[in-house]
């Protein structure tokens, strides 16, 4: 029997935070995937760590604005650095990204270990995997709290942060849907109409950085990439319509959040496991499971359907295009 107060205090904030992280990143991931720039989502979610740590060292705070500005600045710096490395060393984009993101992430870890940031719940474990379980709604009493704005304002900061970012992401996609589509499908044609495809790509990147910063508390730097890639890649296997893909990716993200959290919260008890499960990890595993299922069983592009139809009409490996930078 689940106690309502326990649910409101412990389960709901963590569940909502994990789900919104998957949703915000998954929605943006659609366009990263279509532009074959998913690895850039990975780079961004890694480099927000040094950004957040440096912002903390400068301001002594892990509040929303220092985190957002630090993470955003680090994302911009990393993109410039990736471009620079790519030109100067004349190597492929994937290698440049891999180099920059690991180096900057390592820098973040070093700074984190040497600084006093440990004291304020920023530690390496947290940075890697997030700490959904640490997100609690202190003082939640009953269901009426959910309708009381004054009580809702006392929701934990990571959850509020993610809620705002998710609304921002939805607005961004709603307003710029056709610009994002044309810039992703045919950037040269977009530019020939005076639509700045590169600028739109950079906006997408900044939005991804904001989503990565906001998801940092929930799922950490490592698992964020699962949120960016798995829901859209799952949806990509199931449809040939962009709007349907975006809708299905949102559905996959929400289901992964809810089922993943449920698995972490109740499976150890139900199955008598000796150790608890980290919810961030189970959400990523469920999201990956959805992708695996869709790769196998998607009605048209799934491996089984294609095997049945012979090799005719086969198309590219949608799930594995993360590294194919443009």
């Amino acid at each position: 029997m689940i106690d309502l107060r326990d649910f409101l205090e412990i389960d709901l904030p963590a569940l909502a935070t994990g789900t919104l992280a998957a949703l915000a990143c998954g929605l943006l991931g659609n366009f990263l995937l279509l532009q074959r720039r998913s690895l850039l989502g990975d780079a961004v979610s890694h480099v927000v760590l040094p950004g957040i740590v440096i912002a903390f060292l400068l301001t002594g705070s892990v509040g929303t604005w220092p985190m957002m500005l630090g993470g955003g600045a680090a994302a911009v710096a990393s993109v410039l650095l990736i471009d620079l490395v790519q030109r100067a060393a004349r190597i492929e984009p994937g290698a440049a990204m891999g180099m920059v993101l690991t180096t900057l992430f390592a820098l973040g870890v070093v700074l984190l270990e040497q600084s006093g940031a440990r004291a304020v719940h920023l530690d390496v474990q947290h940075a890697l995997m997030g700490s959904l379980e640490g997100i609690v709604w202190l003082g939640a009493r009953d269901a009426s709290d959910l309708l009381d704005p004054a009580r809702l304002a006392t929701l934990p900061e990571p959850l509020l942060r993610l809620a705002f970012v998710t609304v921002g992401v939805l607005l961004f996609l709603l307003l710029l849907r056709k610009e994002l589509a044309i810039a992703s499908f045919d950037p040269d044609h977009a530019r020939s109409l005076g639509i700045p495809a590169r600028g739109i790509g950079q906006l997408l990147l900044l939005a991804s950085a904001a989503a990565a910063v906001a998801s940092f508390d929930a799922v950490g730097a490592i698992l964020t990439i699962a949120m960016f890639v798995c829901p859209p890649a799952t949806a990509r296997m199931l449809t040939d319509r962009l709007s349907m893909q975006i809708g299905l990716s949102a559905l996959a993200a929400v289901l992964a959040g809810v089922l993943g959290y449920g698995l972490a919260a109740w499976a150890p008890l139900a199955l008598g496991l000796e150790r608890g499960l980290g919810a961030a990890g189970t959400i990523a595993v469920v999201a990956g499971g959805f992708l695996a299922l869709s790769i196998l069983f998607a009605p048209r592009y799934g491996a089984l359907a294609r095997a049945r139809a012979g090799s005719s009409g086969a198309r590219g490996d949608v799930g594995g295009e993360a590294g194919a930078g443009r």
């Binding site: 056709k178 044609h189 949608v318």
Partner: peptide, 16 residues
Amino acid sequence: EFPITALEVVAMGLYH
């Protein structure tokens, strides 16, 4: 392979 129909591509000529 972009998830878009022929009609939607043609409509892009009207975006500006």
